[in-house]
Design a protein around this nucleic acid. Structure first.
Lengths: 178, 178
DNA sequence: CGCTGTTATGTACAGCCGTACACATCGTTG
DNA sequence: CAACGATGTGTACGGCTGTACATAACAGCG
């Protein structure tokens, strides 16, 4: 069987990994399941990613860009005239709206960093990036608090299944901003 | 080989499961690993817990009591004269201090509810219980916000590895309380 | 005592897993 | 063109997994 030359095989494997985690959860991620999803032989996934951690890092890094895109599409929180709390709450609303498999995926990869040291820098990247954006509008201390509150609210929505209440989020976020 | 009669075999299995998750993470939890840790044959774990989800539910429920005990030992947040934000911040400090394997364990089981519906009610129990305690001191809306912030701060500490800053937590929690 | 249902035990099965490795094939460079 | 390193492929191995099940030992009760 002739091998097919595939210049962006690596990228297709990452995409497949994201689909697998979205459908079967992080526990369902394996070299084999990814290979099947990407329609490539097993040896191909092990070649491009020696270890599963490597693959997870790549997937998490790419998943993070999902949130970054939502941020960017809303002006990157850069508008000094807009209400920061309202912007953040709107951001979360847009992110949490519609298909939640993407959100659950990002969260699951993000939370997996708790036990997988390899993922920790990538997760920290996400939090630091958001904090840095917020620091342009408020002090670092408040920025850190806002990130924590955003994390907590997202967690509650995803964990308990209650619908996202944007008005609640906006009002509570506003309390944190001095 | 004579079987040994063990009236609280079930409890010992749960304890062993908690130790396993603490040491090897949730991914390392299996009927076999628990059986080895509890020093019981494989058939015993499968008898008392038909499925792994059952075992996780029991473990999470027991782990939750770890936090509940910290709450109780500090008066259960019931002292109306004390500063609520300071009490909460102190609570988190005591919980996060010292050996963190217990905390990581609780968090990991808690967060696993994201993908395992069986764990969701137990996780919701934890959040609702804390919210109910707080509602005796403030309005339900604020209580929900405080729970979210507590979750978020704990997550940041565990995920990024920065040491817990009790003064920061107290001040930020106070901002949320109207 | 004898009977019954519960609890305990060992073993076996089929399946998935990560990893390693030899081999084929490609693009590229000398 | 030739040679080389990077990339793609198939297969095999040992280990771990959940689950099922037949058998044995128990506690409690009539």
């Amino acid at each position: 069987m002739p091998r097919r030359y595939d210049p962006d095989r690596r990228q297709r494997i990452i995409d497949a990994a994201i689909r697998v985690v979205g459908e079967k959860g992080l526990a369902g991620l394996s070299h084999r399941s990814v290979a099947a999803e990407a329609d490539v032989p097993l040896g191909s996934t092990t070649y491009h990613f020696k270890t599963l951690d490597e693959l997870m890092v790549a997937a998490l890094r790419q998943a993070n860009e999902g949130f970054a895109k939502v941020v960017a599409s809303r002006g990157g929180l850069a508008d000094d005239r807009a209400d920061l709390a309202a912007e953040l709450a709107g951001l979360m609303g847009e992110w949490l709206a519609g298909d939640r498999t993407g959100v659950e995926l990002e969260c699951e990869l993000y939370l997996a960093a708790l036990r997988r040291p390899a993922l920790r820098p990538v997760a920290a990247e996400w939090a630091d990036d958001l904090a840095a954006r917020l620091t342009r509008r408020t002090d670092p201390r408040t920025a850190r608090a806002l990130v924590a509150l955003v994390d907590g609210i997202c967690l509650q929505v995803l964990l308990t299944g209650v619908p996202y209440d944007e008005e609640f989020a906006r009002e509570v976020l506003a309390r944190v901003i001095p």
